[in-house]
Design a protein around this nucleic acid. Structure first.
Length: 526
RNA sequence: GCAGCCGUAGCUCAGCUGGUUAGAGCGUCGGAUUGUGGCUCCGAAGGUCCCCGGUUCGAGUCCGGGCGGCUGUACCA
């Protein structure tokens, strides 16, 4: 047995796309979800929770088939052969929940929930196969006021999380508008479904590729820097021009990129605090006025009308285009959105360890899905909702320095000098704990040096030491590790370091708790 | 999924046109210091060079296939 080669040892390995969470991660995410929850509660939403597993048919499409049994969604068969799946978002389960409890719920039904969702697809930086979403939805409210509210709530949430105004934007569009545009350039009807998809995907890449990239994708196609060729939609030049004039109607408001192009286009530049140049934001009303003049079919105008309502409502509530912006290039989930769609984007630039720029892009998104609950009922039920990608937002906030990753203070460590006096040490630990102080007994088997190293690594504020000498005198030694670390910088040789016992003092055994309490208070002030 | 790059100690990486026993820094552990975290010095542990096959007298190095990672792209409810 002992002679077994290493090869036979099991490799400790995490499956691709999954991640362990460190104490720092957990604490940071908890702070975030607390903040998000606070905003949602304030808006009057209430919590609800559904399980990780749903019937595959509840989630809709992506039913496992023989060729690609788990494409996109993790699925498995129950022992009655019923297919089950891990949820891939929180919206489909909510739709099921609402449909199942329809009579019992007040309408409009406003709820929030957060939890893990699973996607069986290729992971990437900041993209995992298990990640956390935080959703809020209003079901049973057909009015654009429900959409406007969700956008304002998204804005409030990001600001409470520490993202400054101007470092993010909630971009709003409408599926009806997009469909209207498709109709206007002759792409209505089932026979053009595939082309429409290609066109909308191209439009979606506006923020990343800019007008020229989109133009290529709408026409013949585009070759990226790796030499990979993406086939274009093959539209005629006049169709492309119409589309681009539509997409660019919102671009004057783009402060995130392509500044040079915009300046060349004659957009105004204003001076803000200091030497900072920024493009002046186009008012949402101006964007909408431009958009309204572009096409005139009924669907398009209906969509524009809804956007105008949203713009009016948010304006009345004091939200302008620096926070919530009408942007015709927003596409989002082509599958089930039926009306207004929104997307929260972080706009600040951050570079990674290698100095390469990192773009976070969309950290949250949502929209109106009037058909989703209707899958379970005889009539459509209007609904609109919003989903925050907690994990992705967390890594963005970390880069922003808004998520303190500094380790939390560890426990007070009571060291073990004399093995036969464990009871004494245990009593000290208990007293500290009863006083509400995080404390623990050193449970390892090593000597004093190792025990202090351990305490240091645990980020302990201090250690308690009591040898037989102190025990006889009724004393304890308390060593302030934080202060000691500071003093160590001025001590060069180990002789004095050990002899002086920096930042160490004794206290009467019976005043232990008070002495530790005072020390902790001093550390908090410093 | 497609394309490109990469895979040597826990981590970051050296390793010449194929040639004895594969190295360094950091980290870990021990000692100098039988009761004191840092610094310094000394020492130790730690590797089937991703896997399988091929070429060769000889492969970490060359070739083929696989697996894994990164980047771009596609998809993204």
């Amino acid at each position: 047995m002992a002679g077994q080669s290493k090869k036979q040892k099991l490799q400790p390995r995490l499956p691709r796309g999954f991640a362990d969470r460190t104490p720092d991660d957990i604490r940071a995410v908890t702070r975030m979800t607390d903040a998000i929850r606070a905003v949602y509660e304030r808006y009057g939403f209430e919590p609800v929770e559904t399980p990780f597993v749903e019937l595959t048919e509840t989630l809709g499409k992506f039913l496992p088939d023989l060729d690609r049994p788990n494409e996109g969604v993790f699925s498995f068969q129950d022992d009655d052969e019923q297919w089950l799946s891990l949820r891939y978002d929180l919206t489909a389960p909510l739709a099921r929940y609402v449909a199942e409890n329809f009579e019992a719920l007040p309408k409009p039904y406003r709820s929030y929930r957060f939890g893990w969702v699973f996607r069986n697809e290729k992971p990437g930086p900041g993209r995992f196969r298990q990640f956390m979403q935080f959703d809020a939805d209003t079901v049973g409210a057909p009015s654009a006021a429900a959409d406007a509210e969700i956008c304002m709530m998204a804005s409030d949430t990001l600001e409470l999380l520490g993202v400054k105004r101007g470092d993010y934007v909630i971009r709003v569009n409408n599926r009806k508008v997009l469909d209207g545009v498709m109709e206007a350039i002759g792409l209505a009807g089932d026979e053009h479904a595939a082309t429409r998809l290609t066109v909308l995907r191209a439009v979606d890449k506006m923020d990343r590729l800019g007008p020229e990239g989109v133009r290529l994708l709408l026409g013949a196609g585009r070759k990226d820097e790796s030499g990979d060729f993406t086939k274009g939609a093959g539209l005629a030049p006049e169709q492309i021009e119409k589309l681009l004039s539509y997409v660019e109607a919102g671009q004057a408001a783009d402060v995130t990129g392509h500044a040079a192009e915009l300046l060349a286009g004659g957009h105004e530049v204003i001076e803000l605090e200091g030497s900072h140049h920024e493009l002046k934001l186009t008012e949402n009303a101006d964007t909408l006025k431009t958009l309204r003049s572009l096409f005139d079919n009924a669907l398009y105008l209906e969509g524009i009308g809804e956007l105008e309502q949203i713009a009016e409502l948010i304006h009345a509530a004091g939200y302008e285009a620096d926070r919530i912006r009408i942007d015709p290039s927003v596409v989002r989930g082509l599958e089930y959105y039926t009306g207004p769609v929104y997307e929260a984007e972080l706009t600040f630039q951050v570079t990674n360890e290698k100095g390469e720029p990192v773009r976070f892009g969309s950290v949250a998104g949502g929209g109106r899905y009037d058909g989703l609950v209707g899958r379970f009922r005889s009539e459509d039920v209007p609904a609109t909702g919003f989903s925050i990608g907690v994990s992705r937002l967390a890594s963005a906030l970390k880069a922003l320095g808004k998520l303190g990753s500094e380790g939390a203070t560890g426990p007070v460590v009571v060291t073990v000098m004399d093995r036969d006096r464990m009871g004494d040490y245990q009593r000290m630990v208990s007293e500290l704990r009863e006083a509400g102080i995080r404390a623990e007994l050193y449970l390892g088997g090593s000597g004093m040096k190792a025990q202090l190293k351990y305490a240091d690594r645990r980020n302990a504020p201090c250690v308690i030491i009591q040898g037989s000498q102190e025990a006889i005198e009724g004393k304890v030694q308390i060593k302030d590790l934080v202060e000691g670390k500071r003093l160590s910088e001025t001590i060069a040789d180990n002789q004095t370091w050990r002899a002086e016992r920096p930042a160490q003092f004794d206290a009467d055994r019976n005043t232990l708790v008070q002495a530790v309490r005072d020390l902790l208070a001093r550390q908090t002030e410093g």
